[in-house]
């Protein structure tokens, strides 16, 4: 009997050792730059499966778990709807837009804008499409327009105009345009695209997308979800003692500026001391900079805040 138990324990140990080795191999493989790019792409695919019909797994799960009504359109995951319902008190009811906004804010508060950098398929679409266009045909809007002023200005107008009623925000929403692109065009329902939606499509995909350096012009200027997350991210980094954020190891950084070139949001810069700096108003934690950094000076950490973060003034 003892021999049998011993053999069983040895077998278990051997299997556990194999499992640990396998896990270690997986970790090493996933830590390779090429695998990290694939991992990032898989994140966006997951985002697509979670939020967009016909899959809309997030909507289905929420409806099932909380026993609430939900349609499978992207409108259920809308920032504007809760702001519009601030006055009539519907924001205090348990519905999907409010839950979505709460989860989004919570994640941004503790972990940073990970939704934009890891899950949002609408932003990723233009970023990946822009990789197909040669750099010489792309415009760096940040060199010509004050990005942060337009970003926060549009956000303020977006929030305030919600109280005026109507659903005009949908006409310039890239989430909704993407929804139409997936669910209507393949079925021949081209009339679903109104003239304004077509203009949004051109602006989002072409002018501020494919032909913009980094491919995330729309995210930089007009995305209210991203702006809200960045505000909460900055707030979290100032208030919380432990916070998830991008940290730059100053002793390792050699100021080569490769992170500047690879950042799709133009959120990186090199300061006078020759050290890379993150602009928390724009960073979406896509970790492109960390992947491309030759000296491994950039990483995402969840830990104690070392003093006040370097939030750039604008």
């Amino acid at each position: 009997m003892q021999r049998v138990i011993k053999t069983m324990i040895e077998n278990f140990k051997r299997k556990t050792h194999c499992f640990i080795q396998l896990m270690e191999y997986c970790r090493k493989t996933l830590d390779r730059p090429a695998s990290r790019s694939i991992k990032r792409l898989l994140g966006y695919v997951l985002g697509f499966l979670l939020f967009y019909a016909p899959f809309a797994l997030f909507h289905r799960a929420a409806a099932c778990l909380l026993n609430i009504e939900s349609n499978l359109t992207i409108h259920s995951f809308c920032l504007r709807v809760p702001t519009a319902h601030l006055l009539d008190g519907k924001i205090f009811q348990l519905n999907l837009p409010v839950i979505s906004l709460f989860l989004l804010s919570l994640s941004a508060f503790f972990l940073g804008p990970i939704f934009c950098g890891k899950l949002c398929p609408a932003g990723a679409l233009t970023e990946y499409l822009s990789m197909l266009v040669p750099e010489k045909y792309k415009i760096s809007w940040a060199d010509h327009i004050p990005v942060l002023h337009v970003r926060y200005g549009f956000f303020l107008g977006f929030i305030l105009s919600s109280f005026l009623g109507g659903h005009l925000a949908c006409a310039y929403c890239n989430f909704y345009t993407f929804d139409l692109l997936i669910n209507y065009i393949p079925f021949g329902q081209i009339t679903a695209f109104s003239s304004s939606m077509l203009l949004t499509l051109i602006l989002w995909i072409l002018i501020l997308g494919v032909f913009t350096k980094g491919g995330r012009g729309y995210c930089s200027f007009f995305c209210p979800v991203g702006t809200l997350q960045n505000i909460i991210y900055i707030l979290g980094s100032r208030i919380l003692p432990i916070h998830g954020r991008l940290s730059i190891i100053r002793t390792r950084c050699n100021g080569c500026g490769l992170c500047l070139l690879k950042c799709p949001m133009n959120a990186m810069s090199v300061n006078d001391n020759g050290i890379a700096e993150q602009n928390m108003h724009l960073c979406i934690l896509c970790m492109n900079c960390a992947d491309k950094c030759p000296s491994k000076a950039i990483r995402y950490t969840i830990g104690k805040n070392e003093g006040q973060p370097d939030v750039q003034k604008f």
């Binding site: 200005g153 303020l156 310039y172 003239s195 949004t200």
Partner: peptide, 27 residues
């Protein structure tokens, strides 16, 4: 930038008189 959403509401609102230059865009 802040005036853009307001402009959208005003230009396309029910009292704006906008009949839509390319059909009923509502946008």
């Amino acid at each position: 930038a802040a005036s853009l959403p307001f402009l959208a509401n005003w230009l396309n609102g029910p009292n704006s008189g906008c009949t839509g230059i390319c059909g009923s865009c509502g946008g």
